[in-house]
Simulated scan of single mutants.
Amino acid sequence: MSESKVDLYAAIRRDHDRNGLSQRALQRKYNVTWRTVRRALDGQWPEPRKKPRQRESRLDPYKQLIDTMLRADLDAPAKQRHTAQRIFDRLVDEHDARDISYPMVRVYVKDRRAEVRREAGLGPQAMFVPQTHLPGAEAEVDFGEFHIVLAGKMTKVYLFALRLSYSGKAVHRVFATAGQEAFFEGHVHAFRMLGGVPRGWLRCF
């Protein structure tokens, strides 16, 4: 469901209930049809966005054959495994696939070979490592350059940023130079603003 449409329906109801806007006024304000206003006021929710139909490809009838070749390669010696060119040649010679091109096969094989290995438990697996941060224990520091318009002139300055990993609270300070003194001063300013020093570690990027 589109979040923007949910927000739109909620705004229409709010303007109608709190501000007393008429349906016609709501149409004009939000540039929508009367049906949209009516659905919102009736307490309906936007319909889920339809997934776009996957485009058909001339390669579709041969993908299962390609997958079979790639799976056979899992147990084959490296020198005997199929290249994209070999797969293309086999499709043409053995299955009369005259309506496909080599680039189509090459692109599919490039992506699918790794997927086949993962499906067989041989490739790198997608993993998620959750991070946990204790309150006041850790912080991250960044010190980089950016440009601002100062007195009508584009000027390079340096931004010091220190962010607490747990709360996400951050302190920023701009400097004219990126010297060690500015780096240290940025830390002192951040610790003063935060009311203390992280008791664990500071990670610099």
Results as ranks from 00 to 15, higher is better:
Gln27Tyr: 04
His187Asp: 06
Ser165Ile: 06
Tyr102Trp: 03
Glu47Gly: 05
Ala151Trp: 06
Arg35Trp: 06
Arg38Ala: 07
Tyr62Ile: 15
Leu91Pro: 09
His172Leu: 15
Arg117Asn: 05
Lys153Pro: 08
Tyr166Gln: 07
Gln180Ser: 14
Leu26Thr: 00
Ala11Gly: 13
His172Asn: 12
Asp17Arg: 09
Glu3Trp: 05
His133Tyr: 11
Pro198Gly: 06
Arg163Met: 11
Gly168Val: 05
Arg13Thr: 00
Leu122Thr: 00
Trp34Glu: 05
Asp60Val: 13
Thr132Glu: 11
Arg28Val: 07
Leu122Gln: 01
Trp201Leu: 15
Glu140Ser: 14
Arg58His: 13
Leu159Cys: 11
Ser57Gly: 11
Ala120Gly: 05
Lys153Leu: 11
Asp42Arg: 09
Met104Arg: 12
Glu47Asp: 14
Val92Glu: 03
Glu185Cys: 04
His95Asn: 08
Arg49Asn: 07
Ser2Pro: 01
Pro135Leu: 04
Lys5Tyr: 10
Ser22Gly: 02
Pro124Val: 10
Asp111Thr: 12
Tyr9Cys: 02
Arg18His: 04
Arg55Asn: 11
Glu181Thr: 09
Asp75Ala: 09
Ala170Val: 06
Asp142Met: 11
Gly186Ile: 10
Tyr9Gln: 05
Arg53Ile: 08
Ser167Thr: 13
Met69Lys: 10
Phe88Ile: 09
Gly123Phe: 03
Met104Tyr: 07
Arg71Asn: 02
Leu59Tyr: 02
Gln44Thr: 02
Phe183Gly: 01
Phe143Gln: 00
Val107Cys: 12
Lys79Ala: 14
Glu3Arg: 12
Asp89Pro: 03
Val109Phe: 00
Ile12Thr: 02
Met154Val: 15
Lys156His: 12
Phe160His: 11
Glu3Gln: 12
Gln180Arg: 15
Glu3Ile: 04
Ala126Gly: 12
Ala11Met: 13
Ala178Thr: 08
Glu145Phe: 10
Tyr9Phe: 05
Arg24Glu: 05
Ala137Val: 09
Glu119Asn: 01
Phe88Val: 01
Met69Cys: 01
Gln85Cys: 03
Trp201Asn: 11
His147Trp: 12
His147Cys: 06
Phe160Ile: 00
Glu119Ala: 03
Arg18Asn: 05
Gly121Ile: 15
Trp201Thr: 14
Gly123Glu: 13
Arg35Ile: 07
Thr155Cys: 02
Ala11Val: 11
Leu194Pro: 09
Asp96Lys: 15
Glu119Asp: 09
Met69Gln: 12
Gly121Tyr: 02
Pro124Leu: 15
Arg13Trp: 01
Gly123Gln: 08
Trp201Val: 13
Ser57Gln: 15
His95Ala: 11
Met127Arg: 15
Ser165Met: 04
Pro103Lys: 00
Trp201Arg: 13
Arg106Ala: 03
Pro130Ala: 03
Arg14Leu: 08
His82Val: 01
Pro103Glu: 03
Arg113Ala: 04
Gln44Lys: 07
Glu140His: 15
Arg117Glu: 06
Arg90Ile: 04
Asp93Pro: 04
Ala178Glu: 10
Leu59Glu: 14
Leu159Thr: 15
Leu8Tyr: 05
Gln85Ile: 01
Asp93Cys: 13
Asp142Gly: 04
Arg173Cys: 01
Val188Met: 11
Met193Ser: 13
Thr83Gly: 06
Ser57Val: 10
Asp73Ala: 03
Ala72Pro: 03
Thr83Val: 02
His172Cys: 12
Pro130Lys: 06
Phe146Gly: 09
Met193Gly: 03
Asp89Gln: 08
Val174Gly: 00
Tyr158Cys: 04
Gly195Val: 09
His147Glu: 13
